[in-house]
Amino acid sequence: MSEAQLKWGRTGTRVGFQLLTYLLLSLCAVIFIFPFLWMLSGSLKPAGQIMRFPPVILPELSTLSFNSYARLFQAVPFARWLLNSAIVSISWVCGALLVNSMAGYALSRLRFRGRDMVLMIFIMTLMIPFQIVMIPAFIITNWLRWVDTYLALIIPWIPNAFSIYFLRQYFLTIPRELEEAAILDGLNKMQIFYRIITPLAIPAIVTIGIMTFMWAWDDFLWALIVTRSKELWVVQLGIANFFGQYMNAWDVVMAGATIAALPTYLLFLLLQRYYVQGVALSGMKS
């Protein structure tokens, strides 16, 4: 084959490969976004239409209505519940990032007795089903007089073994040379932590931040058992309010669920740029 043909062939293959990739990605994307769209369209239809067959994904413009959203905010204090969720989730995330990164650093970079044992114990805390843990946890919360307060919603689950473990794994990948250079420069361990390690671990911290926010925002069962007053409800409880014994207000449920999904979405969108390759090691040059 001539050189020109070879070159052409390679480009053709590359374009084909790229096209295939995009096709695959787009197909997957449809599968992933589709139920969310269905949920959104369900919130814009009257309650009776959600189970129609053949399934109506795009509602006709004539029946499109934001009625369910209106009902959501009028029939119940949904705005207050959104605020509660925001308060709880943001406090939780702040606390979690602090506490868990400190623990992760200690378990990855510091040497002390019992270190590996502590890590093991932390991971073990993930292995027990929540239904069993929640009763004694509730008894303790009750004893602390935290029931029906924000404290009970925020504090108990701030230290989280998943986060600690993940951050620890991530910290392990940061090269030791950086630390050693810093020690030579006269920094102590704490300063290394927040001047050097933390900036390099931004992708991991952002990830944990998003996840913690998601867990806090989506938490249902714990909020259910420690909350008594309706003023203290969080969004997930609010949505469950519209489920009944025999019938559910599907349109309102879908509206609530759509709104509930938005904050995490927005957070993720805003923080996407921290997933850029190379940010982690930009400090290497200095």
Binding site: I90, G95, L98, Y150, I154, R228, S229
Partner: peptide, 17 residues
């Protein structure tokens, strides 16, 4: 840290009935 402490103190009093 300060933010967290402030929030915790503040909201622990703004509880339910």
């Amino acid at each position: 840290i300060l933010l967290f402490a402030a929030c915790a103190l503040n909201w622990s009093f703004a509880s339910g009935t």
